[in-house]
Design a protein around this nucleic acid. Structure first.
Length: 481
RNA sequence: GCCCCCAUCGUCUAGUGGCCCAGGAUGUCAGGUUCUCAGCCUGAAGACAGGGGUUCAAAUCCCCUUGGGGGUACCA
């Protein structure tokens, strides 16, 4: 039985990079009908915040991920929050100490920092020199009585650690190059390495899928697994996601948090789809796909080893595809809050003309990539359009006036408009004015919407209706410069 | 500095020794859609980082160089 996990630390908002790790763990578990575990790594007390945990769970759910074990659903190997597992780490640490696998280190952070600096200056590796390994009983006693707090360090053996990575193949590290690392901080909380190894052991994790940034940590974890007398899980280190400047994706690259995308009205399935496209591609080369379409063929071993640059344009394209294909009812109800917020439609849902709204949304969705953009696209249907001075000038020209007049007189003939009626009317205008193409459409578009771009004119006209069209055209009849 | 990982169009990628003077997607550009468009259709330009090997044959295997990323913490 396969058990994968996503183990974020709640020190900030979940962004595309981390979320992608969650997605592939989830996908992998799903693929093999295994268990997906969510574990919150909140041992860094100063940086971890409860609200981030709450947000994280919400964001993951929004994306459509679900887990069988986690802090919110519990499970047989809980608790699933490291801050609640402190006693476990403590017990195991004591065991390590007793077995001589670890030892107390009394060096202060300041001392360590100083030594690192000096080592660096001398061109030597800035690693810990293991000095507290060889403390005499006397020295230990004197440190203890002086009240100096200690950390616990793991004795790193001088050996070659070799392991097979599902993505990168055989990897090996010479541990003689590494200093003894801290497993327990002086405040009694476990270090990341220790907590990870303990939890993955206790939670019976079979596959650790995580970022490449953990690749060089892996030998440390393997050593700990050995010390815990546990066979290490399989590892798969995914390449990282970067910004356009080829540095690790972070907040300063823009709105990359999942909740930000949700706020902007991206559809979760689009964001999910895009994340899966980073570092992986389906066999059939169809880039737009649902999870159900690809789970059965997903192979983690075929994932890209090279880091991928996050491309907002491609996300927007994909998202636009989803917006256009999605159920109109759904898109409409998603659009309502945005339209209300900008005051385009009433706050009271009962006062909204849903039938008309659906037409508006359907017309506007062609030109947007996320729902929040609907307000810029749809405002022409709800409020009197402002026409710029430049456009007024354009509308007052001879040809514009001819068209507007002709179109206006056509409007008099119809009580209700439809795309067909509009096309017919326009054909007449064209014949009368002997003008076609851009010169024909643009004056009408600008007079009606105040813009050069927008949804198809026949949609605009049909939705606005005869009266509104007439009123809006009237504003520009007989306008002189 | 030391250690590790990586390297195909601007970007995401296909490619696992001959189907490749490299395929798709996005983006860009051009044309079409009796208007516009971030929509739809058609088309164009656009890449195997460089140098050595191995082989009848290399984007694909090996080595070096270069470039990028990560690690080297009482962060995760």
């Amino acid at each position: 039985m396969i058990r994968a996990r996503f183990a974020p630390s709640p020190t900030g908002l979940l962004h595309i990079g981390n979320a992608r790790m969650a997605v592939f763990n989830w996908l992998f578990a799903k693929r093999y009908h295994g268990t997906f575990v969510l574990r919150i790594e909140d041992t860094d007390v100063t940086r971890s915040e409860k609200r981030y945990t709450i947000q994280l769970i919400e964001d993951l759910h929004w994306l459509g991920l679900n887990w069988q074990e986690g802090p919110d659903v519990d499970g047989p190997y809980g608790p699933y929050q490291q801050s609640e597992r402190l006693y476990l780490y403590h017990d195991i640490c004591q065991k390590f100490l007793k077995e001589g696998l670890a030892y107390r280190c009394y060096c202060t952070p300041a001392e360590l920092e100083e030594r690192r600096k000096i080592a660096k200056l001398m061109g030597k590796p800035p690693r810990y020199d293991n000095r507290c390994r060889r403390l005499t009983d006397e020295q230990k006693k004197s440190f203890e009585t002086s009240g100096l707090k200690s950390t616990v360090r793991f004795k790193v053996p001088d050996e070659l650690v070799v392991f097979d990575d599902l993505i990168r193949g055989t990897c090996q590290f010479d541990m003689s190059l590494m200093g003894d690392f801290v497993i327990m901080r002086s405040d009694g909380t476990p270090s990341f390495h220790f907590a990870v190894a303990v939890d993955d052991t206790l939670m019976k994790i079979t596959h650790v899928i995580r970022g490449e940034d953990h690749l060089s940590n892996t030998p440390c974890h393997i050593l700990l697994f050995h010390a815990l007398k546990h066979i290490p899980p399989q590892f798969a280190h995914l390449s990282l996601t970067m910004g356009t400047d080829r540095t690790l994706l972070s907040k300063r690259h823009g709105a990359f948090s999942i909740s930000e995308y949700r706020k902007l009205g991206y559809l979760p399935e689009a964001v999910l789809n895009y994340m899966m496209l980073l570092g992986w591609s389906p066999k059939d080369k169809k880039e737009k796909f649902r999870v159900e379409d690809i789970v059965d063929t997903f192979e983690i071993t075929s994932m890209s080893k090279a880091p991928a640059v996050f491309n907002q344009q491609k996300l927007d394209w994909l998202s636009g595809q989803y917006v256009r294909e999605a159920d109109l009812e759904r898109i409409t109800s998603l659009a309502i809050p945005y339209l209300q917020e900008t005051g385009l439609i009433p706050k009271d849902e009962n006062n909204i003309d849903k039938t008309r709204l659906k037409l508006v949304v359907d017309a506007a969705r062609n030109n947007i990539s996320c729902i929040s953009q609907i307000t810029q696209e749809a405002d022409i249907f709800f409020k009197e359009s402002l026409v710029s001075e430049k456009h007024v000038g354009f509308l007052s020209s001879g040809t514009s006036q001819t068209i507007l007049l002709s179109f206006y007189s056509q409007l008099q003939k119809f009580d209700t408009l439809s795309p067909e009626v509009f096309k017919e009317a326009l054909a007449t205008v064209q014949k009368e004015a002997k003008i076609k193409g851009k010169e024909l459409y643009l004056p009408i578009r600008i007079a009606l919407t105040g813009r050069e771009h927008g949804p198809e004119l026949h949609c605009v006209v049909t939705i606005l209706g005869t009266d509104t069209c007439k009123k809006r055209i009237e504003r520009f009849l007989f306008v002189k410069k």
